[in-house]
Nucleic acid binder design. Structure first.
Length: 474
RNA sequence: GGUCCCUUCGUCUAGCGGUCUAGGACGUCGCCCUUUCACGGCGAAAACACGGGUUCGAUUCCCGUAGGGAUCACCA
């Protein structure tokens, strides 16, 4: 690889959170740049002053940081470059590649209505394109439009979509500068990409059509064309456009609400629309080594929450216990309504290896850990209550008596005693273990019972059994 | 509607003319492991949209049809 001049950029508009599709676009840009030893830059497209917000900017930066997509250089804020954009528009005006258009919004609406009625394509009809300067109404507001070529066609060798050709007649003269003098998105992207020396424009394929108009601008300025890669959008599980219902949420929702790991989200996103043989789990380093745009699928992929959760579960199991404890502790403290103590953290560390095998996300993990940390008497859930109600009479009391006298308070020692009790009472081990589990964990499901007892310790374990015994006799 | 793009199991994908009686993963179902739940292991059902070509031979190439998607602003 070595040094290269590859420059990619992620250019979200801060009108909302960083959603999952944006995150994937960022990932592909990041991976492509790193693969080629180039630069990955971040540009905030905040030219829409009405819709751009500070919280949205913060959410985007936060999301990218969480996913660990490190960008190169300072963040470029597009609005700050408005003067430069206007300068280019005026340059185009001066050299005849652009013109003033005095059509009002109402006029244009009428024009479109007529086109719609006549089932004609809705395009600006170039009414001011060739009018002499003398026709200009004095003092009236105007926009500056690009004088785009009307004949011939343009072909883009899209790195994902392949060669795509569009006739120039299909394109109209887009607005460069609004009547208030501010630049449009079309102008701003082209100027910024050029000034930032972007070599590869990797973005959602909702921009594919825009690329042709942008190319006209690039040609008018005599600038060199970047390479384009338009990646398909992500769809919901029903094939429709991704909506909130499907998971078109901010990445913060994946982190906070769903409790997912960033590397799992990254892995899932990478595999959505891209593959490397039969590989399912791909590390960041491998992704950088293997990623290429030609491997990106051309059809939209559906978002599958089940698979994301599964991938996350795999990553959870592969994550070291200490990190999981750190990640899960705030959730546990919220559920418990108190801060964790050193003793709590100790038991979390020691139980984590077993707990993480049962959790697909941090929420599940937190929930499953609670019983270790609750103070007596612990709540007994419905499933556990049923187990206790149907337990063989006296098992709990017998087991309690047996455990009280045990010297070897280890998982092995406890299991041995439980097996003896089962045998001597002509019960299956499960008939002894399940009521005990219910009493000790308050649930019908838990990690191995004897490991749990060993971790909890003699006093706590016996106390919990006593608590239940007390309610039975009472 | 115009233009552009896409089409392998329910979903994500492997496949880049013969290796395909189409592979992997998630999900589903069954079995095993087992003190529960998981984890893990084994196995099953499940796809080349349709119709024409090209070719000795098409999942792979071309053209239609159908279906899906994107886009048609003084938003980005």
């Amino acid at each position: 690889m070595g040094a290269s001049n590859v420059v990619t950029r992620f250019a979200p508009s801060p009108t909302g959170f960083l959603h999952i599709g944006g995150a994937r676009t960022a990932l592909f840009n990041y991976l492509f740049a790193r693969h080629h030893g180039g630069q990955f830059q971040l540009r905030i497209e905040d030219t829409d002053r009405a819709r751009s917000t500070e919280p949205a900017i913060a959410a985007i930066l936060d999301g990218l940081e969480w996913l660990n997509f490190e960008w190169d250089g300072p963040v470029v804020y597009q609005f700050a470059r408005a003067a430069r954009h206007a300068e280019v528009a005026h340059q185009l005006l001066a050299n005849g590649h652009a013109y003033r258009c005095y059509a009002t919004a109402e006029e244009l609406e009428e024009m479109r209505a007529a086109q719609r009625a006549a089932k004609q394509p809705m395009r600006y009809d170039c009414r001011w394109r060739d009018r002499p300067a003398g026709d200009a109404p004095a003092g009236a507001p105007f926009v500056i439009r690009l004088k785009a070529p009307r004949d011939g066609s343009v072909t883009i060798d899209d790195l994902v979509q392949g060669p795509v050709t569009v006739a120039n007649a299909e394109l109209d003269d887009m607005v460069l500068l609004r009547s208030d003098g501010t630049p449009t998105y079309m102008l701003a992207v082209v100027v910024d990409d050029h000034d930032m020396a972007v070599t590869h424009v990797i973005r959602g394929d909702d921009h594919l059509n825009n690329a042709f108009r942008q190319l006209a601008l690039i040609h008018a300025m005599g600038w060199s064309e970047p390479a384009y890669a338009h990646i398909p959008l992500i769809h919901g599980s029903d094939g429709a456009k991704l909506s909130k219902r499907h998971g078109a949420l901010g990445v913060d929702a994946y982190r906070d609400d769903m409790g997912l790991l960033p590397e799992a989200v990254e892995n899932y996103l990478l595999r959505l629309g891209w593959g490397h043989g039969d590989d399912e789990f791909i590390s960041r380093a491998q992704a950088i080594e293997w990623f290429d745009l030609s491997g990106v699928g051309r059809g939209p992929a559906r978002f599958d929450l089940k698979k994301l959760e599964s991938v996350n579960g795999q990553y959870m199991r592969a994550t070291d216990d200490a990190r999981l404890v750190t990640l899960v502790t705030p959730r546990i403290e919220t559920a418990l309504g108190r801060n964790t103590t050193d003793a709590d953290l100790d038991i979390l560390h020691r139980s984590m290896a077993e707990l993480k095998k049962r959790a697909a996300n941090l929420n599940d993990l937190a929930t499953s850990a609670l019983f270790y940390l609750r103070t007596r008497p612990i709540p007994i859930d419905d499933g556990a209550a049923k187990l206790l109600a149907s337990a063989a009479p006296g098992v709990l009391a017998q087991a309690r008596a047996l455990f009280a006298g045990i010297n070897d308070w280890t998982a092995e020692g406890l299991e041995q005693q439980a097996r003896h009790l089962a045998e001597s009472s002509a019960l299956k081990l499960g008939q002894v273990a399940q009521p005990l589990r219910a009493a000790i964990t308050g649930s019908a499901q838990s990690p191995g019972l004897f490991d749990v007892m060993a971790l909890l310790g003699r006093d706590e374990t016996l106390g919990r059994i006593d608590d239940v015994l007390a309610t039975i006799t009472a």
